[in-house]
Every structure is written in structure tokens, then in C-alpha cells.
Design a protein around this nucleic acid. Structure first.
Lengths: 338, 338
DNA sequence: TTGTACGCGTTATCAA
DNA sequence: TTGATAACGCGTACAA
């Protein structure tokens, strides 16, 4: 790790000159010194010290991806196929823009804020925020923030959101089920807030259009914790006897359900139709292949980072609510009732 | 972002005293000043500036996870269930140890080395290194390195490796197939080096024990690139008519194969027995559930980080080759031939 | 027990 | 066209 100072000494010039060459401030340096310096830089493979650079410039070239963990939900958040695809897209975009990514996972917002400010990160990507979490962060952190999949209306005054047509996506696929002749349709999810609530609303709207009033019992609540999921799935399979179809809030749950149904000798779609949401590898590889709502998760990450970079550069963005679209992917898990 | 200097000014004392209290050098400060300082720190929620701290101490509290991307293999490396589970374990352990994690993904080793030294990271986790990649890194980076799943013998002189009983695992499951009456067994993988080679060797050893000489045509080569995989699977399904069982180098490939077989009307395990390696969600949720070799991927990440932390602290480690075990998971994709 | 002063590597200001 | 020098925030040897 050679430093600018050392280079300057060996070349018998000042650190300023070396620094200028490094930063291409070429107008202020004579051609021959430029040549000399650049040659030497290449020879010793000079790499700047980020800590020093950041300290001097009061920036960091770091973008943080902060994720609030719901402690109970996953032992390993990154194993959620949605999260890993998202992080993959984010990482790639951050890297290609010449920035560095740090990941903070915590169930404690305060902890996340401390990490963010201790590294003086240039921009913040927020995921998994509930209620006014995002607002609380934005009150203490005064640099660009982009939220992913938040439904906090109030929050939009404080930061940009990259979201999805969740309501419409679930409406579309529920309507598809209806068109296939289903009317006894259950909805499966693990909670009723944020994204899940929006999707639930889409389901309700489609049902109401055909005059079916959704009852509380039509909401099937899955408990995804490792020690509870089996009991939970057993109950759900039981309850599903009253229905001809079930709309799941995610592909993961849809596939977990199909496995459970299979183990009980129930066939999809002959005995029960199942649809998911997300369109990830799990549903694509399962047989019968899952009918679902497609969203481009990687793209979501890319858009979020690009938006954040614009904000960092001080550019204007058209709107602080960016909605990505969905599309129906019809495969083999829905039976047409005659 | 309040600084130590500002705090010292407001409290009418020196920065040294404040710094001492922050670092718990309590023996050198009077109890009442400690009290005063700590109270104030809490009140203003002091957060140190990492860049400044690292610069002063010549460390970084950063652990890098560097992954060499084989450009062709995955658009999104993190989507590989193995990788995401591994990274999840690493992230958690790094965080709990009070360190920060940075991820570098590149197909270019030089690029990785530059990133590592520009941030002056305290320790390096290397994954996906081929041949002497790891050695080349260790020649330029003179801090602790832990490699994951490398098979470079030479490398062990330069760094520690956390690996798996790949050969034994594949030997065990091939032997299980044999015990079930199979002898026409193919092996499916996308290359023949590193981990894949070790597993292939395990397969060969089991076959040779029953006097079957493995022929080159018994090695089925899958092409995982998105635009080639379908053709590749079609060919493989064709070739598999000569066999009663196939041992796949990973669960991912096993499940992709089972999907392809299903689409051609071939049943698992009635028409063909299939086994995998890794034991991830994909194989657990598929039906029929995949018989496979279990490895604890998260644990692999945890062990790697713990080893690296020991090296960073200057502690001795018993051996620089740490081998994790495997176990057979018998589920429903192998038919017993009578 | 507390304070002064310097160095870490870099950038930026201003003078030469 | 180039070179001193101060600053960024922190830790620490050494002095008081």
C-alpha cells in the first residue's frame, strides 16, 4: 500500500501534483510530469486509501442496503428467494456505478441508523420497513433514501419509494381464477399489512366484483417459522376442503402448500387450484409448474439503485412513487371448472 | 454527526478524556467525569466516524467476501441457493462479531484485489477461486485469508480452507443407489474441476467397487446458461434412457432435471431414480422430495468467518484445512430395484 | 487525572 | 505549472 506522499517523495515532487494527475486535473500539470507520474502509478499499482479519501471529502462511496428483520420469520433472511434476487440486482448496479455496498440487517431501526451514520454512507436503500420506520430513519439521516415496497403514504414526503402494482397483480390473477370458473377462493398469507395487505385488497376487489363477500375465514394465515410451519400447513390443508382454489401471497408459500397437499394425497390442480405471486425459480421448477403473477425483482433492485444514484448526484426525479408492473404467467396449477 | 472535539468543547475538557471514556479506559479518568461524559454521549447519541477511526488505527473492521464470477454461469450469482445461504451465514456472523461485510463480485481477480486493498479490509473470504487464483491474491494481500471450497493443494500453504467431504458424500450416495439395486448410473455436472471433480471422483470410486468401469459417456454435461439449458436438458433426458439412475452434482441440477423429465412424461423414481447434493429448499419442497447429500451451508459460512476472526486476532488455528461432514438424506426419488 | 500535539492518507486552498 | 499547508475525525504518546 504505497501512499501519495511516498510517491511524491520518490518522484521529487509534491503530493498536490501527484493527486492532480490521479484526478485527471490535467490542465494544471505539464505533459511530461503527467507522463512521469502515470507511469510510476502503473508501475507500483497505486490504490487510494478509501478511508483517507472519504475523511477528506466527507463522502464514502458506500450505499447501504438496510433490511429490517422480523426476527421470527426467517432464520436466514437472504435465503428468501425474493431477497436474494433483489440483493443480486442491487449489488450489481451499485458495483457498476463505482460504489460499494454494505448490508445491514437488524430488527432494530436504531441499530441500522447507527451503522449508516458511522460509515457516513452516501445513500440508503431501505427494505422491510413497517409503519413509520422509514420516517424515523429519515429524521436522523439527511441524505438520499430510497425505500422498497413500502406502503407508508406519509413516508413519501420523506423519501422515494420503488414499489409494485401489488393490488392490481393479485386482482388480475384472482380474476383469472374466476374466469376459470372458481368462486370459492381462499387467500393465504402470513400477515395483513404492507405488501400483503395490498395483495389481499386486490383479491377482495376481484371477489366483490362477482358479488362474493370475503369473510374473515377466507383469509388463511400461514406461520412460516420453522417450528410451526408444518402444523400450520396441516390446518390450512384441512380448511381448504371448503374451497376450489387458493391465491397465495407468494410463490414460496404456494410451493410449500403444494408440497403439503401432495403429501396428503391431494392433487393440484385436479383437487385444488393454486396460484402464487412473484414468479421465482421455486414455482418455475415445481411440477405442476405454478401459475403466478410475474414481477421483475432484479429490475426492482436496479431501479431502486439508479434512482438513489440520481438523488445522490442531485438530479431531479419525476416522482417519488415509482410503480413497477406485473404480468400474469399462466402455467399448470389452475383447473378450468366446467 | 457530532465529533469528539465538539463534545470535548461543550464539556470543557480535552478530546483525550472523551476518547478514553468512549474506549472504557476508565482507570485513568475520575468517576465523576466518566459519568458526565457518558451521560452526554448518550444524550447526543455519539457515533464514531469509521473512516477517521480506521485511518488512525490502520484497520477497517471490514471483512470482504470476494467471489469470482464465472460470467456465463449465472446472470445473478446470489440467486444460486447455495450462495445465498452461504452469504446469509457469513453476514450474520460478521455482524455479530462487530465487523462489517463488503461483497465483491468480479470475474477479474485483479479487480478484487484492488477493492480489498483500497478499503484496507482486515480479512478476506474467498469463494469460487480456480486453480491458483487464491495464491495470486495471497501474494498481494498480506492479511488473513480463508478460502471456501477450494481444492488447490498448493494454496493451503498460503491460506486456510473450509471445505467439505465432497468425495465421500458422493461416494456415500452412489453406494446407496447401488444398494438399491442400481448399476447403470450416470453422473451429471457442468464441469470437472474443483468441487465437481471431487464429487465425480466419489461417484467413480463407488462404481469401481462393484466392478463397473466408468466411461466418459457416463458423464452428462449440463449447460446452465439460460439460453442453452433447455437444449442441454433435452439431450440429457435422451441419453438417460440407458440408465436407471443419475447422480447430480447439485440439488439445483437435480430439480431442473426432474422438471424436464416430468415434462417428457417420465416419472421419478419409477422410470428413473435421481439424487442430488446439498440439501437445499429446492429439493426439500419438490415432489417427489429429493434424496440427497446434506451439507450445512450456513454452518460453512459461520465456520469460515470464525476461523478468519481467529486469524485476525492472531490466534492459532489447529489446521488450515477444515473439512465439514456430510450425511445422507433419504427421501423419495430413488426406486429399489428388485 | 487531564491536556497538548502529532500522525494516519487524502484533498483543497492559496501562494510561489 | 508547482508546492506548502491546513483540514477531515480519531487515537495515543507524552507532557503537565
Amino acid at each position: 500500500m504505497i501512499t501519495i506522499k511516498e510517491i511524491a517523495a520518490k518522484l521529487n515532487m509534491s503530493t498536490t501534483t501527484v493527486s492532480n494527475v490521479i484526478h485527471g486535473k490535467t490542465k494544471e500539470v505539464s505533459p511530461q510530469t503527467i507522463e512521469r507520474v502515470e507511469e510510476f502509478l502503473k508501475k507500483v499499482d497505486y490504490v487510494p486509501n478509501m478511508n483517507a479519501r472519504n475523511l477528506a471529502q466527507n463522502e464514502s462511496k458506500v450505499i447501504a442496503f438496510a433490511m429490517k428483520a422480523r426476527k421470527d420469520k426467517y432464520t436466514n433472511l437472504l435465503m428468501d428467494p425474493f431477497v436474494s434476487e433483489l440483493v443480486g440486482g442491487i449489488e450489481e448496479t451499485v458495483r457498476n456505478a463505482g460504489y460499494y455496498m454494505m448490508i445491514y440487517i437488524s430488527s432494530d431501526i436504531t441499530e441500522i441508523m447507527r451503522q449508516v451514520s458511522t460509515w457516513n454512507v452516501d445513500g440508503l436503500l431501505l427494505f422491510g420497513m413497517l409503519n413509520d420506520d422509514g420516517i424515523r430513519v429519515s429524521e436522523r439521516y439527511h441524505k438520499p433514501i430510497v425505500c422498497l415496497d413500502t406502503y407508508s403514504i406519509e413516508g413519501l414526503k420523506h423519501f422515494t419509494n420503488v414499489g409494485l402494482e401489488d393490488e392490481k397483480g393479485m386482482y388480475d390473477i384472482t380474476k383469472y381464477l374466476i374466469e376459470c370458473g372458481h368462486c370459492k377462493i381462499a387467500f393465504l398469507s402470513d400477515n395483513q399489512s404492507g405488501v400483503d395487505l395490498a395483495r389481499y385488497n386486490g383479491y377482495c376487489r376481484a371477489m366483490q366484483e362477482i358479488g362474493v363477500k370475503v369473510k374473515p375465514r377466507d383469509f388463511l394465515c400461514i406461520q412460516p417459522e420453522a417450528d410451526k410451519i408444518n402444523d400450520s400447513l396441516a390446518q390450512i390443508c384441512d380448511r381448504l376442503q371448503e374451497y376450489t382454489a387458493v391465491a397465495c401471497v407468494s410463490d414460496l408459500y404456494a410451493v410449500q402448500l403444494m408440497s403439503a397437499l401432495h403429501d396428503r394425497g391431494l392433487r393440484v390442480p385436479e383437487d385444488l387450484s393454486v396460484v402464487g405471486f412473484d414468479d421465482n425459480t421455486l414455482g418455475q421448477l415445481y411440477r405442476p409448474a405454478l401459475t403466478t403473477v410475474h414481477q421483475d425483482v432484479k429490475q426492482k433492485g436496479v431501479v431502486a439503485v439508479e434512482t438513489l444514484l440520481k438523488l445522490i448526484r442531485g438530479e431531479q426525479i419525476p416522482s417519488n412513487q415509482i410503480m413497477l408492473g406485473t404480468s400474469l404467467v399462466i402455467r399448470d396449477t389452475v383447473k378450468t371448472l366446467s
